[in-house]
Measured scan of single mutants.
Amino acid sequence: EINVTSHGEEQAKHWIELAKRMNLDVEVEIHGDKIIITIK
């Protein structure tokens, strides 16, 4: 399980695309200006 804290939408999209390509599950939480991505 990987937790990524992203401070930008572009960076977040990059991680989500990467996870989808690798067929991994992704959870995205938004806390103000921080985007927390959990890849399982």
Rank of each mutant, 00 (worst) to 15 (best):
I35A: 01
N23E: 04
E9G: 05
Q11F: 14
V28T: 01
M22N: 02
E17T: 02
G32S: 10
E9T: 06
K13P: 09
K40T: 09
E29G: 03
I35Y: 02
I36W: 03
I2H: 06
K34E: 05
I37W: 00
V4Y: 03
I2Q: 11
I39Y: 01
T5M: 03
A12M: 14
K13W: 13
V28Q: 00
M22W: 13
K20T: 08
E17W: 09
T5S: 08
E9C: 15
E10Y: 03
A19Y: 06
A19E: 14
T38W: 02
I35F: 02
E10N: 07
I2G: 09
I37F: 01
D33G: 05
E17R: 02
Q11H: 11
I37A: 01
E29P: 00
E27W: 11
W15L: 13
W15D: 15
H14K: 07
E10W: 06
S6P: 07
D33P: 03
I35H: 01
A19Q: 05
L24K: 01
I30D: 01
N3I: 14
I35Q: 01
K34F: 14
A19L: 15
T5N: 09
G32C: 15
G8E: 11
G8Y: 14
K20Y: 14
I2D: 05
L24F: 07
E1I: 12
N3F: 09
E9L: 14
N3E: 10
H31I: 12
S6M: 09
D33T: 06
G32A: 08
L18D: 05
K34H: 11
I16F: 11
I37L: 02
V28H: 01
N23D: 08
I2T: 11
I2P: 04
H7F: 11
N23Y: 14
I2M: 09
M22K: 01
N3H: 13
T5W: 01
I16R: 04
V26R: 00
I37V: 05
A19H: 10
E9A: 10
T5Q: 08
W15Q: 13
G32L: 12
K20F: 15
I36M: 04
E1M: 13
I2N: 08
K40W: 06
R21G: 12
V28E: 00
H14L: 06
K40A: 04
E1S: 12
I30W: 06
D33R: 05
H14R: 10
K13H: 08
K13V: 07
N23C: 14
E27F: 11
R21E: 13
I35G: 00
T5I: 14
G8D: 14
E29Q: 12
Q11R: 08
K13S: 06
E10R: 03
E29Y: 06
I37G: 00
H7V: 12
H14Y: 11
